[in-house]
Amino acid sequence: MITFNNVSKRYGANEVVRDVSFKINPGEFVSLVGRSGAGKSTLIKMLIGEELPSKGRVIFGQYEVNKMNQSELPELRRHMGIIFQDFRLLAKKTAYENVVFAMEVAGRPQAEIDEITPQVLDLVGLSGKYNNFISELSGGEKQRVAIARAMVNHPDVIVADEPTGNLDPINTWGIINLLTKINELGTTVILATHNKDIVNQIEKRVLSMEDGRLIRDEEKGKYILV
């Protein structure tokens, strides 16, 4: 479903991703690990079309992401659920409206939106917080809104870039449990993290990056720092 084929990314003289190749199949849970600056976020940015590779091909399903122009990207992103460390929620909207927004941009009918939005918010543990503005939510709650927004359109893949980076341990495990549950329901999950405990506990496929290179690709892998 996802293929990186000899992908490199260069900013001026600085090559941050070097000749990376891998494939991710539908339904997989993949942890992308490495120290800060290893190239994890750049890899994710190339997958979601925020950055273009300097070399190589990035394939997502039927899309060749590296060849897509700006006007084609919204279509691609509607097949993805994207979660970030800094939540990236619409601050002037409520939790409910943030989720609704994702459905509306995907052109979902109103009746469906009215039915599904409360269900998804309940599923991520935000019952009773529907009408809270983002500023009125804790970090963990914000990330739950982000997950609800990411999963509400039944994406093919959920891409989470350090989703627990700003959270305390309790919320961290709450979020990881949600992501594993989503994966168990059949959605591919890519989790970029440098949290060793998470990677070692969930025991899923691990792609390890160092200095822009993919140095290890293991099924049921561990986070091994070199």
């Binding site: 700006q70 006007s71 990207l73 992103r77 994207i82 929620l89 002037k92 927004f101 994702a102 941009v105």
Partner: peptide
């Protein structure tokens, strides 16, 4: 400005 970036990430078209 940030909200525009977020909308793009969620998959909103330029017109939307």
């Amino acid at each position: 400005k940030d909200e525009i970036g977020i909308m793009r990430l969620v998959g909103a078209s330029n017109a939307f």
